[in-house]
């Protein structure tokens, strides 16, 4: 068996590599690398990106530096048929950019209504209240796809980037056990 794995192959086998723009060049990076290198966010606005990162971090700690915003944004920027988002099989028609933009805008608006401050300034108690209201679809002026569904999707995305990659497997003690490619295909 061939145990020599190139860097590109390793990244591919690790679960996610995304096409992002860094210094005017399209490069293949993991979402966490894209976050660290401040790759350009192409579809989501700056405000939507902030909302996403703060909320996802509250749901799944570690998801911000794991590159949640770059992961989602890269999928929204790519061809529909190549999407790696779980939303793909939850029955929401593509393109999915509208869905994410709608729920992130609704989230930001609700935070403003309920707490009169940006989401990045919520303390942990306020964030807990917010998550509880979202889970129960109890935000009165929520405008967009169901709030509880938005919670499920964003939490799943955040779980993907934190626990769906080798580092996440290692953090909880699950050996990834990726298949080793056979030397030849029959």
């Amino acid at each position: 068996m061939n145990n020599t794995i190139s860097r590109r192959h390793f990244l591919k086998a690790s679960g996610i590599t995304i096409s992002v723009i860094v210094a005017n060049q399209i490069v293949q990076l993991s979402p966490s690398q894209a976050y660290a290198k401040e790759a350009i966010i192409r579809v989501l606005s700056e405000a939507q990106t902030t909302t996403l990162e703060v909320f996802a971090e509250a749901l799944v700690p570690g998801s911000r530096v794991a590159g949640i915003s770059h992961f989602i944004d890269s999928q929204l920027a790519g061809p529909n048929e190549d999407s790696l988002l779980m939303l793909k099989y939850l029955g929401v028609p593509q393109p999915h950019a509208g869905f994410y933009q709608a729920i992130l805008d609704a989230l930001a608006a609700s935070v403003k209504t309920y707490f009169d401050k940006p989401i990045s300034e919520l303390n942990s108690k306020q964030m807990e209240v917010l998550i509880g209201l979202i889970n129960q679809d109890a935000l009165e002026d929520w405008a967009g796809p169901s709030a509880s569904f938005a919670y499920f999707v964003l939490r799943s995305d955040a779980v993907d980037v934190v626990y769906g990659v080798d580092q996440g497997f290692a953090d909880i003690g699950v050996p990834p056990m990726h298949h080793i490619k056979p030397k030849q295909v029959w």
């Binding site: 591919k12 086998a13 679960g15 996610i16 999407s83 790696l84 779980m86 769906g164 990726h178 298949h179």
Partner: peptide, 8 residues
Amino acid sequence: VSSQIWAR
């Protein structure tokens, strides 16, 4: 590729 994300 052995990944639940890629599997989509």
